[in-house]
Design a protein around this nucleic acid. Structure first.
Lengths: 360, 360
DNA sequence: TTTAGCACTCTTATTCATAGACTGCTAATA
DNA sequence: TATTAGCAGTCTATGAATAAGAGTGCTAAA
């Protein structure tokens, strides 16, 4: 039974069968209980008898959309059944006013540290959906360094502020007792050689630049220290980071299951292994500019088979989304992820445009 | 039975009874199983017979140190039993090299944002102990503003850097297009009126200062904006914040229990209610400079009765500690909390001293 | 004061029986 | 041909009954 065959089956299914499948998925998502023909009759309307529904259910089972755990139990959707349902709801439902307001409010400050921005986004996503949210940081290879500034804090400490293309700001403290004037000069020197360079260039040409900088900033060891720190920081930022929030929601998800304990352990281990989890996210086939999902066993990692992973790219190679139970509220999650993803993309793009303007 | 009577009982208890009590608590903490006389015999040594142990256990039960869930079950420690055990181990065990190294490494940077410092501390505490960690931010009323600096980022954005007494740094972005020179001048003006002032003064005398600043910084609306933002920031910082980490560990704790689900829900709600949780922490009677603990029903809040709350003040009105099951590894937790608490205090105090020096 | 020995208590696991929820099939019906 | 009523058959869930086992409390002796 190839994928095409399955699709044909769906297309050729009459309306009632689709409605029944939809009703089963919907009801199972809401209640978590296997769905009986009787239940469908009550929920979905008494146009036909329960016997007819049973016949259709048998058909749906034959073609792999639903299954039962024993000979006379109600039916639960299979992965294929969810897939049908999910592809069905392409019209995104509107977000509530309240949610929209919360999102607006959360993004109030524009030029924050990238880290804070992404963390906040993950938190938002999680609290609005009630599931576990993740945000995968963008790939920073192609972004440009906009400025690096050294600022005297007090007799012993200097603050280094780094601004990149995407509106990223990060700060580090260096111990140094140079005067404000000297620091200003050093900042100017550093900026002259580094401004507008791509981060991956800066990373790759470290040695060459180091020489150059050493030549130009003779007598200012602080410049070299700043340069070294900048490199360290770039290395850190170019590593992709994963921000996960709402782990408490995991409790709700997993607690009602039979194998809750071992499930939770697996998932805990996975969530702590950024690399594997990142892989699982990146492997999801992405619809350009839209929300994608890997349902249950569609997931790359075995540990994720009991869950669904909703993901959306927000540009610059970054992605955000939701980890939830297979029976999650896809409609709500899709629209929320979509809205927040677009919002985040806008914020990052605007940062970029503003930069472009100042560089003219 | 007053507290004195109880203490008398403990003092008058012969050595063996204490050892048996200690063995029961220790074994129960390790295994989670009710402890039988036979088990004690095996674990603790065969100097006496199990019947003798049973007699002693009866005594210990009579005076409220242990209890059994049914007539012929093994014994579990009562709150009073834990209390005995905990007061018993006042010598803190040494921290492992590995842990000490992790702590050193984590505190590498000295002048970080207070928020980051506290978050990192909570994370550290949680990962070293395997329980839920909290850090309650210090009371900032009496700290002094050290400097406020405005820094041009690009054509549209200005970074405001605020440094306080405790080595606190926080940053905010203001939209403004003033030149670097103008900003420098504004910074100087702001510093002249605000440096060395206590944060609560600044907060309370807002109106008066605003007038003063308006007079002096005529023509620089950015100064007023910075001032307003400073106030907003001070208000935010002076609110006590609670940083909680390691919630995943809650899973391990709660999963093995019978009423796990409802327990977890309660606790989730509590952890999200900073105010109540803060109250529960502050109400713990503190040993000056040491670690204190509220065991089980000793906790102020009913929701915390199934847990123990270990807390240590790190000065400046701040506290940090661990939320864990009543049967937690107190020895390990005490020494870890103690070590980290002292470390944090040192960091904050050094920040303060450095400040004092620059002010001379 | 300690100990051996035994009766007694309560838990936990297992088995068994019963009620109930659904399906699948057959035969009748539109 | 599609639908439906009715009923037999399947499996779960629940509770009762039972047996095995872990552990104490007590008594009488050392």
């Amino acid at each position: 039974m190839t994928k095409n065959a399955k699709n044909k089956t769906i297309k050729s299914m009459d309306v009632r069968k689709r409605q029944i499948l939809s009703a089963i998925v919907d009801h199972y998502i809401k209640t978590g209980q296997a769905v009986s023909s009787q239940t469908i009759l009550e929920t979905y309307g008494p146009q036909v008898s329960s016997a007819t529904i049973r016949n259709d259910m048998k058909f749906l089972e034959k073609y792999g959309f639903i299954s039962k755990s024993w000979s006379s139990s109600g039916r639960t959707p299979t992965t294929q059944g969810y897939r049908f349902f999910v592809d069905w709801i392409n019209e995104l439902s509107e977000l509530g006013r309240k949610d929209e307001y919360a999102i607006m409010e959360s993004y109030e400050f524009q030029r924050q540290r990238l880290e804070d921005l992404l963390k906040r986004t993950a938190f938002l996503l999680s609290s609005l959906t009630g599931y576990v949210a993740f945000v995968l940081s963008p790939k920073l290879e192609s972004t440009e360094l906009e400025s690096i500034t050294l600022l005297k804090l007090d007799g012993e400490n200097v603050l280094m502020v780094i601004v990149s293309n995407l509106g990223i700001i990060d700060t580090r403290v260096i111990r140094s007792s140079y005067s404000a004037e000297e620091l200003e000069e050093v900042s100017a020197l550093l900026n002259r050689s580094l401004r507008g360079r791509r981060l991956d260039q800066i990373r790759d040409e470290a040695v060459k630049q180091m020489n150059e900088i050493e030549r130009e900033t003779w007598g200012y060891p602080v410049a070299q220290e700043a340069f070294a720190l900048l490199h360290q920081l770039i290395d850190q930022q170019m590593q992709r980071h994963l921000y996960v929030e709402g782990i408490l929601n995991l409790l709700k998800i997993v607690f009602t299951w039979d194998e809750g304990l071992s499930q939770a352990r697996h998932l805990m281990a996975l969530l702590e292994d950024e690399e594997r989890f990142t892989q699982a996210i990146e492997v999801i086939p992405t619809k350009p500019g839209g929300v994608s999902v890997a349902i249950g066993e569609e997931n790359f990692l075995d540990d994720l088979h009991p869950y669904s992973l909703v993901s959306m790219g927000y540009g610059f190679g970054g992605a955000l989304g939701i980890l939830g139970p297979v029976r999650m509220d896809y409609s709500k999650v899709f629209s929320t992820a979509n809205y927040i993803g677009n919002r985040l993309q806008t914020i990052l793009t605007v940062g970029q445009r503003a930069t472009a303007m100042t560089q003219n």
